[in-house]
Design a protein around this nucleic acid. Structure first.
Length: 668
RNA sequence: GGGCCCAUAGCUCAGCGGUAGAGCAGCGGCCUUUUAAGCCGUUGGCCGAAGGUUCGAAUCCUUCUGGGCUCACCA
């Protein structure tokens, strides 16, 4: 274990080295890290320096650090000039290309070599370029908040520019700040160097009159944009009205070897922004702001639910069977148990087991994984809030959702009027509530008659679905799911081909062919309505979904697409389920939970039938979950809210990747 | 996976058959209240990769790689 270094307050340059710097020549041990060839401390008028032979890194191999000072110069009265001219050691790397030196593969290599050389130069002077003993007394944000009220009035436009005016700190209190150097503007004996600490910037004013001479000579001249620095000094206002730190001591805390992107443009290459988010964040305050907001959103949700006696829990993310949603999973394997596991697609069935167990209000905020394509709305791993509320129903969820999201908008965005991806939104309550049936009619443009048929007669529904562009394969699958598949005797590809025929009469053959096999019993008649509802939902997606711009609860979902939701008391072909849409995108999904174990078993069976009919995104039959329902789950309402999409909405992001710190990318 | 588009210096971008350019960053010089500081000088490129076409390719064609948008799937 390394001995503890003295705190920065106590740390001064080693006496011998300091003397050596002023006196003349310091020779490094041969074992020292090979630095730059030579760092020459030169007088100002020295004229052309050592000539072409000094160029490039070829000569950098020299192990000697030369600090040449003309004898007596330091004592000659012009102390400032001496400090500037003689103490500023400068690296001599990268100029005057030579044939005998090693060449760099790229500009980047050269820049990094130069920065390493600067770090080595500091080491040679007894300064660690990666020290960790600097303790700031304040954050930059705290200093800004504290001194902002002391801002002096701007000087009159015709006020004379008195260049040598003394600097008067606001209160003279010495503070220590740290952050990343984001720019450097040198003026010879003065350097302006804004640092960024968290989200706040503050300018360091490094002047030879005020700053420690060794610091100024050894550190300031070799600071690069991107370095992490610490500084001690007093706060003052420049005459241009910029809050600044009049630095007396400056410390390099971390040498940055890689250059930051162009300070004006930042990173614009989206791929680079996602792959190297650390650069994106370091350079783009607006990106940082997005993720700060996201964090506030998640914290706000927790506060909201905690305040209503919801208990945050964590359920498994590796599932032995697929459940809780309709999606393709990622598959993994446990070695010791030799067990196939799926990364969860939803926590739903576990959370409801907890309600069975007597946790009447639970929630979980965590990742789900779905093995599907990527898009502006989809990342394979995404964050979901799910919460379950016993003795409540789906309409309670809608009220709660309105309250929660408008509260977050007020908190995070300062109001309910937003712009998202070019769309103006107003989240002010109450939000529109519309049934799927009404949406198809009012927004999708279907006549009242067609709409009525769409949700009751599978034959008409199939025709309407095909007419509105629903793929024939989907239509065929829906029809088959509810029929007695074996009885039709028609292979799926053949049915699909028939459904693609150009004339309605030809297509009718296939449709009738299937529907004829729905049994003529109560169950068969019910199956027709369920199939029709499913087709109605597909027509909704094709015609009306994109038109749900302002926040809207879409209600009364068809049974067939809701295997875990409670049947509506008014019409058992529908469920007490809703989805929240904003700007045509689904944000939330909630329903009164199905807690009848026998009904649940039937729904799982229907999922198996759907799978048999060709659907590739279905749930497994979860026998343990049914067993849990047999123990008895109180009447419960449950909801899932996509946190990424909510964050997109509240930050105005067009792509989900803009609200995920490290979105999934192909390997580099 | 399909369609369209993009890839040139560390960063941001020009160039679109005829010797690779600019701004920023870097390096050297000047500059003690600047803030996209300024002025002078200067280094830096297998033009994403591999094949073609051509006297000649960053530029035209093909394939590949990575990315964006979009469609499909989903939340």
């Amino acid at each position: 274990m390394a001995p503890r270094r003295p705190h920065v307050d106590d740390q001064r340059p080693a006496a011998g080295l300091g003397a050596g710097q002023r006196g003349g020549v310091v020779v490094l041990e041969p074992g020292d890290r090979p630095l730059l060839l030579a760092a020459l401390a030169r007088r100002r008028r020295r004229g052309r320096r050592s000539g072409p032979a000094a160029g490039r890194l070829g000569l950098v191999l020299g192990l000697v650090l030369l600090l040449a000072t003309e004898e007596g110069q330091a004592g000659r009265g012009d102390k400032r000039d001496a400090a500037h001219g003689d103490l500023v050691a400068r690296t001599r790397v990268g100029s005057a290309a030579m044939s005998d030196g090693p060449s760099f593969d790229s500009t980047l290599d050269r820049i990094m070599a130069e920065r390493r050389a600067k770090a080595d130069s500091l080491r040679a002077a007894g300064r660690d370029p990666y020290r960790n003993d600097f303790r700031p007394t304040h954050t930059v944000a705290a200093i800004r908040a504290r001194y902002e009220p002391t801002k002096p009035p701007p000087p009159a436009a015709d006020a004379p520019r008195d260049k040598g005016a003394p600097i008067t700190p606001v209160d003279g209190e010495a503070v220590r700040l740290a952050g990343r150097l984001v720019a450097k503007r040198g003026f010879g004996k003065t350097v302006f160097a804004p640092i960024r600490d968290g989200g706040a910037d503050l300018q360091l004013y490094l002047a030879i009159d005020h700053c420690d001479a060794d610091d100024f000579a050894q550190v300031v001249s070799e600071l690069d944009v991107g370095d992490i620095v610490g500084a001690e000094g007093a706060v003052f206002w420049t005459k241009r009205g910029e809050l600044s730190l009049l630095v007396t001591k400056v410390f390099l805390l971390t040498k940055a070897l890689r250059p930051l992107p162009d300070k004006w443009h930042g990173l614009t290459d989206v791929e680079a922004r996602y792959r190297q988010r650390y650069v994106d964040l370091a350079v783009s305050p607006e990106v940082r702001e997005v993720f700060v907001k996201r964090s506030k959103i998640v914290a706000g949700i927790r506060r909201f639910l905690d305040g209503r006696d919801f208990l945050e829990v964590e359920t498994p993310m590796m599932h032995p069977i697929i459940g809780g949603a309709a999606a393709r999973p990622f598959v993994t394997h446990h070695n010791a148990l030799d067990m196939r596991l799926y990364m969860r697609i939803a926590p739903e069935l576990y959370l409801k087991r907890l309600v069975v167990g007597g946790l009447p209000r639970v929630y979980e905020i965590n990742r789900n994984f779905r093995n599907e394509g990527l898009s502006r709305q989809h990342n394979p791993e995404f964050t979901m809030l799910e919460f379950y509320w016993a003795y409540a129903v789906h309409t309670d969820l809608m009220d709660l959702t309105e309250e929660m999201i408008t509260g977050l908008a007020e908190e995070v965005c300062g109001g309910t009027k937003l712009t998202w991806d070019g769309v103006d939104l107003d989240l002010a309550r109450p939000w529109r509530r519309i049934t799927i049936r009404d949406a198809v009619h009012q927004l999708g443009g279907l006549s009242a008659e067609d709409t009525a048929a769409l949700f009751s007669d599978p034959v008409r529904a199939a025709e309407l679905a095909l007419a509105h562009g629903v793929p024939a394969a989907d239509v065929a699958r829906v029809l088959l799911e509810r029929a007695d598949v074996n009885a039709t005797g028609l292979p799926l590809p053949e049915l699909v081909a028939t459904l693609k025929k150009p004339t309605p009469a030809e297509r009718r053959v296939a449709i009738d062919g299937i529907v004829a096999h729905y049994s003529d019993t109560d169950a068969g008649r019910f199956a027709r309505r369920v199939a029709a509802g499913h087709l109605g939902y597909l027509v909704f997606e094709a015609t009306a979904e994109a038109k749900l711009v302002q926040p809207t609860f879409l209600c009364e979902f068809p049974l067939a697409v809701s295997p875990l939701a409670r049947k509506s008391d008014r019409d058992p072909a529908f469920c007490d389920r809703f989805e929240l849409f904003v700007a045509g995108r689904e944000i939330a999904n909630g329903f009164s939970e199905l807690n009848d174990p026998d009904d649940q078993r039937a729904r799982f069976q229907a999922q198996l039938a759907a799978k048999a009919a060709g659907a590739d995104e279905t749930m497994d039959y979860d026998e343990d979950y049914c067993r849990a329902l047999e123990v008895g789950m109180p009447p419960t309402a449950g909801e899932g809210i996509g946190i990424d999409r909510l964050a997109m909405m509240l930050t105005g992001a067009a792509s989900i990747r803009d609200v995920i710190l490290f979105p999934l990318m192909r390997g580099e």
